[in-house]
Amino acid sequence: MILALVMALALVACGNKNTDDGKKDDDKKDTPTVITNPDEVQDEMTSSDGKYEVAFVTDVGQLKDKSFNQGTYDGVKLYAANNNLSYKYYQPANGSEVTDDDRFAAMKAAVDNGAKVVVCAGYLQEAALRMAAKQFTDVSFVFIDGYPVGEEADVKDSPALKNIAGVAFKEEQCGYLAGYAVVKEGYTKLGFTGGGGGNNPACCRYGYGFVQGADAAAKELNEKVEINYSWQYGASFSASPELQTMAAGWYQAGTEVIFACGGSMFASVAAAAGAEEGKVVGVDVDQSGESPTVITSAMKGLADSAQWALGKFYAGEFASIGGVQTSLGANENAVGLPTATWSLTKWSVDSYKVMLQDIKDGKIAIDNNYDNLASTENVTLNIVG
């Protein structure tokens, strides 16, 4: 009898009961909490079966580079966490001396560990991606800062691999905004130091856009601008004493602001700026929290693009982006300057938003062919190295 009474009470307790507003619990819909802060998601997780469904393979440099790798992985983590998926990152061996075989080994490890979709960061992944996509035809690959990858290297009109989605950005647009902003702020002695040795299309677009924006502001203000422009010490996108020494020399010679465009290279430029009372333009993500020397950052939606591409995969729509080029810019809200940490005093957020809309509407044309980089009537380029 006691047992029967306990069971009856338990059934009452677990059944539907009226709440204070007179509605039943079943009438309420639980709204899942969406995580928007990637810092709330751990970098490493342990899956129950030892398999990891979503993988990320880093570019050169460290995962926590406060820039390209970290920004992309933030999107991977957020998508996985919000969709209850297992995830893991893979760092290719040999650091700055990484080879295509090292990158392929990281992709293979991801697939062997159960990855259904692999996000790869950086244009240097092309050769390894070609090998991996051809070997693991049932796996989808997202090529951030990438493009369609042909089945055969260096073969014109080679069919694009359908299990690779190339996602690129219109970096010339946010580079333009950053260049315009610093000249409007009153700076006329600028610098640009880029990663990839001048062979990285994204960095080349950033730099060319930066020059165009500086030129536009200089014309408005009837000013003359000088820009030191260099790919030295940036081939590996890494911080180095040599890069810091070069940046310090620029500051000592009168450079006021340097656009540090290349992952961990930022650390060297920011250190030089701090020692020489200079300023820095950050890249890829809002880097203002990394150094008080940052006055703005040329940002692109790395985290958002990774989530967008993963969403396509899990919606069964990967075929719409596989084997084709996707280029995200102002019209997709994928590039811009950070407004939440705005520190500029001579150019307002409202004026920035007007310019951004003009870019979207095509009223401001920004060239993306960086082969056209050259001095102008208002901007003198000093090519270094």
Rank of each mutant, 00 (worst) to 15 (best):
N333E: 11
N333A: 14
Q307V: 05
F259D: 07
G362I: 06
V335A: 02
M355W: 11
M265L: 06
N382G: 01
L337A: 05
I295H: 02
A267D: 14
D284W: 02
D371C: 01
A253R: 12
Q287D: 06
S320C: 06
Q244I: 01
T326C: 07
Y352V: 05
K346E: 07
E332S: 14
G278T: 12
L356W: 14
W347E: 00
Y370H: 11
V281W: 07
A303P: 04
E276N: 15
I364S: 02
L344N: 06
W347Y: 15
G274N: 14
L344W: 08
Y251L: 00
A271T: 12
G274L: 07
F259E: 11
S375A: 07
T345S: 10
D361W: 04
G329P: 07
A271C: 04
Q307H: 10
L373V: 15
V379C: 10
Q307E: 15
V285D: 00
A273W: 08
A275F: 06
V354G: 01
W250A: 01
S320A: 15
A275N: 12
V335F: 03
D286N: 14
V349E: 08
V335I: 11
I258T: 04
A334E: 09
E276F: 10
E242A: 14
N372A: 13
L356A: 10
A298N: 00
F266M: 04
A272I: 07
S343H: 03
A298H: 05
N369C: 11
I295G: 01
G274P: 00
W342Q: 02
N378F: 06
C261F: 08
F313A: 04
A275Y: 04
D350L: 10
A270K: 00
A253W: 03
E377S: 14
D367Y: 10
Y352N: 08
I295V: 12
V379W: 08
S375G: 09
A330D: 03
Y370I: 10
A247H: 06
W250M: 12
D367L: 11
V285F: 02
A330G: 02
Q252N: 12
S291E: 02
T339R: 01
A298L: 01
L243V: 08
S348T: 15
E290F: 13
V257Y: 07
L344D: 02
G336M: 05
G323Y: 07
W347D: 00
Y370T: 10
L328E: 05
P338E: 06
